[in-house]
Every structure is written in C-alpha cells, then in structure tokens.
C-alpha cells in the first residue's frame, strides 16, 4: 500500500473511532463500517484499529474471524450470501446454489477472478416463509427459483 493511501485510511479510521468512541465497545461498529466500505478489513486497517482502541492486533483479527460477515481478506465487489439452512434447503436452495456456481464458474467460498462476485453460504436468514432466500449486498431476495437467481446474479455490476 502506498503511504498516501495508508495515511488516508488512517484518517478514516481515526474518524470512525471518534464517531463511535475510543473504546473496545466500538469494535463491532468500527469494523462493520470498514467492511461495508472496503468489503474487508485489511492487515493495515486491523492494526490501526488496534492501535487507536489500545488493544492488540490479534484481538482485532480474532474478533473478525469470529463473525461470518467480517473478512480479513479482500472480497468481490458484490457479496452474495445464499441461505443453506433447513427451510431454504427444503425448497431447493442447493439446486439454485449449484446453478449459480456453474454460471459463475466458482464454488461457494470463492470470488470470481474479475472480483465481481463472492459467493458465500450463510445460515438461516429468517426468510423461511418465503424460501429460498439470499442476501445480495445486504439486500434480501426471496422466493427464489433458478431463473430469478441467475437474473439477479447477472445484473450485478
């Protein structure tokens, strides 16, 4: 990373810290904000957060690794989270997943080479009454079938 980029990221994190509070209790919010903007929390960002909250970098990494929605490695521009829990599974989620994998040429847990899409499985999205469901960049899509799902995926920039 260039020094200039580092400096601006540092400034951004400093702003987040002053917004949410300079204590460990702000960790979830600060990391959530970084994740939202960059799609992941870089090695440098993790250390900056640790420095500003006066905790150890490994504690930040440990925290990130605990939560499914936080990442310490770069993700694709679009995050597709397919529910694989029982209700969606019963309504054919695995079939849709297989078609999406084929369409994108990657497996769940992977990112397309052009960084357009990352596929992830997730546990119950709370949309069991209109299963199958998936989250795309935080937005919920329900009552999916293969056609619908592929259309949504293909429309992603």
């Amino acid at each position: 990373m260039l020094t200039l980029e580092k400096n601006s990221l540092s400034e951004e994190i400093e702003e987040l810290v002053s917004l949410y509070g300079e204590n460990r209790g702000s960790l979830l919010e600060i990391l959530g904000a970084i994740e939202k903007k960059y799609g992941y929390i870089s090695e440098f960002a993790q250390q900056e957060v640790a420095r500003l909250l006066n905790i150890h970098p490994v504690e930040v990494y440990s925290f990130i690794s605990f939560f499914s929605f936080l990442h310490s490695k770069p993700q694709g521009r679009n995050m597709v989270r397919m529910c694989k829990t029982i209700a969606c599974n019963m309504k054919g989620a695995d079939n849709i997943s297989a078609v999406i994998e084929k369409e994108l040429g990657i497996k769940f847990g992977e990112t397309t080479k052009n960084r357009r899409v990352t596929l992830e499985y997730t546990n119950c999205l709370g949309m069991c009454d209109c299963a199958p469901a998936m989250l795309v960049n935080g937005k919920i899509y329900t009552n999916l079938d293969v056609e619908k799902a592929i259309k949504i995926i293909n429309e992603l920039k």
Partner: peptide
C-alpha cells in the same frame, strides 16, 4: 499483556 495469541475462527 503481550498479546500474541488469541482464539481464531469459531
């Protein structure tokens, strides 16, 4: 208070 080790993943 050195902070090298933590639990990772879940």
């Amino acid at each position: 208070e050195v902070g090298v080790l933590e639990a990772i993943d879940r």
